[in-house]
């Protein structure tokens, strides 16, 4: 084996070892220096896209609230014949199947005693049912600002272009505003259930 392995003594100009170690050192420095490459502010460039002006924006459109429940509406069908009773109380005979979960409010805080087809604001100004958001936002002022900005509630359509937004009562039941629980969509598959034969649901194999 010795015969064909080079013998360094054959070739050793002055300083050869020094050169070797300098090369080695430089290589190590270069390699380790890589770690300090700044990776933030991506240097890789995207395509040279032609200029494309932004689409025109359009003011959002308020969708009408869902239609009132035929069972109760119009209110005057029943209330016309009833003498108005402004005393705050638990309702026992009527509307008792409804959930009331809206702080300490009671009916006449919002519904108008005299004009049953209308709501009233704090200053007694009357408001149509379709415009109930004006009433809600008297208390929920922060939500009004968020809603106007598109941050409370849901917008659909275009972030830039025609879009719709919704009134409070489109999503919240005014008598019981918190969201009601929903059935969730199915959970994802676990990695072990994705097999060469496709998706396999092995419920028993886990938990």
């Amino acid at each position: 084996m010795a015969s064909n392995s080079p013998d360094p003594e054959d070739y050793r100009p002055p300083g050869y070892q020094l050169v070797t170690w300098v090369i080695l050192g430089l290589a190590v420095v270069v390699v380790f220096g890589l770690t300090s490459i700044r990776t933030d502010h991506q240097p890789d460039t995207s395509r040279d896209y032609p200029s494309r002006p932004q689409l025109p924006d359009v003011e959002p459109v308020l969708l009408p609230p869902p239609p009132m429940d035929d069972e109760y509406f119009p209110c005057s069908d029943c209330h016309e014949d009833e003498p108005p009773n402004p005393i705050e109380r638990e309702l026992e005979d009527e509307h008792d199947e409804m959930d009331f979960e809206h702080g300490t409010l009671w009916c006449l805080d919002c519904h108008d005693l005299n004009d049953r087809e209308k709501l009233h604001l704090a200053d007694d100004a009357l408001v149509e049912f379709e415009d109930s958001w004006q009433l809600c936002t008297q208390c929920h002022g922060k939500k009004l600002a968020d809603w106007r900005a598109g941050v409370h509630g849901k917008r659909t359509g275009h972030w830039r272009g025609p879009k719709e937004y919704r009134a409070c009562v489109s999503c919240h039941n005014p008598h019981s505003p918190p969201f009601k629980p929903l059935a969730p969509e199915p959970p994802p598959l676990r990695p072990e259930n994705i097999t060469p034969n496709g998706n396999v649901r092995l419920e028993a194999a886990h938990e």
């Binding site: 689409l55 849901k154 659909t156 275009h158 830039r160 929903l182």
Partner: peptide
């Protein structure tokens, strides 16, 4: 969708309006 000005699909599907998108 968004390069044509539309909202992303997840945003429109959200029943509680928790998702927001913009420039």
């Amino acid at each position: 969708r968004v390069r044509k000005g539309r909202y992303p699909a997840c945003l429109e599907a959200c029943p509680v309006g928790a998702r927001k998108f913009g420039n």
